[in-house]
Design a protein around this nucleic acid. Structure first.
Length: 471
RNA sequence: GCUCCCAUCGUCUAGAGGCCUAGGACGGAGCCCUCUCAAGGCUUAAACCCGGGUUCGAAUCCCGGUGGGAGCGCCA
């Protein structure tokens, strides 16, 4: 049987990091087994679902490269199908009408809680042999409840958490269709998973307690049960739950922070899953190696430092041509005009060693593109003085005399000058850096000047000399 | 309150009864290299939640405790 997995977010916000990991696990599992991955939008709550959120989720999934192998399913477009199944169940006696008002239910719950009991529906409208039901009150539209089996256990053999047993009598008769006829979550999920042939339900472990109910409905429908894998949640750095108020970020914010999609993916896949001591995985490797045997059942904290490290590792080994479009996105975002600068791939090649993120790379590369914004005060104070002005002045002349503007040629001039003067390279390179880059950090000096280009290098050196001497 | 889940260095984790003097990685500390920042190399500190069992032997199995978390909606 071919594997079909799904990711089923409800569109009430952006795609957050926990959702992204769940989506990744689902996608990986499908890929690993040569199966298919489905994206389904659970939008039956029309009050809270927004188109904006749907778009945000798509955007995040697209950026991460987690593509649905089917047309995207919207639950709101399947109401006819849900209604059909509800009719079937009503007819078969696996569901029934309940005329309790919300107020009645509130009273029921309050009483149970006061009694230190688990709040649950008491079954007053549940048909039983030999039981007389109350007569339906006029003007009340009933909800439809699932008639849950009252005895025995429901056994869930979770791929991550292992065997979990629920006593049936812990499960009450949940509402599957509201008074207005709109079906509810637990019911839609079941019908969808059944109709779409989902073989593996991979989702957050906040759904563990829903699972026995879903299993019972599936059984009532005569469907084949899928396998379940409940992934633990991702916590904030302080070990508390992520929330909007507390550090929960959408995946697109990680893009804005300078992550590559593969960097985030690699970090996420290692959060909870392991393959021996291996830390770094290409997308292909993840697809090949991922499995649930090595997914941890306990929650994990999101550690920004490690995420940065993973991103850096990825940046260092990836073909610059792949990084370039993403780097370009950041440069444009910073308002950079790319037309006058060096090739992005060349900049990436030279900068990636010292940049954990593309934001960092952008900040450290701005001087290659536009005009110099000015000199970093501290760096200028340290490296600009009469002596360095003389050095820069003389070097300008020597560089000007170069017939070819190549790294080896520049290297020969700069090193030769240092030797001739009996100065350490640091005495030479640092003032040059501040002069051309505005700061004391840049790639090796020959590479920096090469990328900057002859004209701008000479102009900036001259400008620096003038700047120093004007003081 | 009830049901369910979870528990190895600060963090992510390896670990399926002896291979554990508990391994790797991030982060930390130190040293080396060095034209800056990095990168790299080497060294180092740092953990099996507690208590009972089972066993010749337990981080690993069982029970209890403690701590954390989730769920208990005409939300998803």
């Amino acid at each position: 049987m071919s594997v079909v997995t799904r990711f089923a977010p409800s569109p009430t916000g952006f795609l957050h990091i926990g959702g992204a990991r769940t989506a990744l696990f689902s996608w990986l599992y499908a890929k690993k087994h040569g199966g298919k991955f489905l994206l389904r939008v659970e939008d039956t709550d029309r009050e809270r679902s927004t188109q904006e959120a749907v778009d945000a989720i798509f955007e995040g999934m697209a950026w991460l490269g987690l593509k649905s192998d089917f047309d995207i399913v919207y639950q709101t477009k399947r109401f006819d199908r849900y209604a059909e199944v509800i009719q079937q169940m009503l007819k078969a006696g696996t569901a029934y009408h309940c005329y309790c008002s919300k107020q009645e239910l509130d009273v029921m719950r309050a009483a149970q809680q006061a009694n230190k009991q688990k709040p649950r529906y008491d079954g007053r409208w549940r048909p039983e042999v030999g039981k007389t039901l109350p007569s339906p009150p006029p003007d009340v539209k009933p909800v439809v409840r699932f008639r849950n089996p009252s005895d025995g256990d429901v056994v869930l053999d979770d791929l991550i958490k292992g065997k979990i047993v629920f006593a049936s009598d812990e499960l009450d008769d949940l509402i599957i269709a509201r008074a207005d006829g709109v079906p509810t979550y637990n019911f839609c999920v079941v019908v969808d998973d059944m109709d779409m042939g989902i073989t593996h339900v991979i989702r957050g472990d906040d759904h563990v307690n829903n699972t026995p109910r879903q299993i019972n409905i599936l059984k009532a429908l005569g469907a084949t049960l899928p396998k379940y894998a409940h992934v633990s949640m991702i916590l904030g750095a302080d070990g508390t739950k992520l929330s909007k108020r507390h550090g929960a970020l959408g995946v697109m914010e990680y893009r804005a922070m300078g992550f590559m999609p593969e960097g985030i993916l690699n970090y996420l896949v290692r959060l909870g899953w392991s393959h021996g001591d291996q830390e770094l995985f290409s997308r292909d490797e993840m697809c090949k190696l991922f499995d649930f045997d090595h997914v941890s059942a306990s929650p994990a904290r999101f550690d920004m430092e490690k995420a940065y490290w993973v991103n850096h590792q990825y940046l260092k080994v990836t073909d610059p041509a792949i990084v370039a479009p993403e780097f370009e996105w950041h440069l444009k975002r910073a308002g950079v005009d790319l037309s006058k600068g060096p090739a992005l791939t060349a900049v990436i090649e030279q900068q990636r060693e010292r940049c954990k993120t593309l934001v960092e790379m952008t900040e450290k590369s701005l001087f290659f593109f536009g005009d110099l914004a000015g000199y970093n005060e501290k760096d200028a104070a340290k490296h600009f003085n009469e002596e360095s002005a003389a050095v820069l002045d003389e070097l300008t002349q020597q560089l000007k005399a170069l017939t070819e503007w190549t790294a080896p040629a520049i290297h020969t001039v700069v090193n030769g000058y240092a030797e001739a003067k009996g100065l350490g390279l640091g005495k030479i390179a640092q003032p040059i850096r501040v002069a051309v880059a505005g700061m004391a950090v840049s790639p090796p000096i020959d590479q920096t000047l090469l990328l900057l280009g002859r004209e701008r290098t000479l102009a900036r050196l001259a400008a620096a000399v003038a700047h120093i001497r004007a003081k």
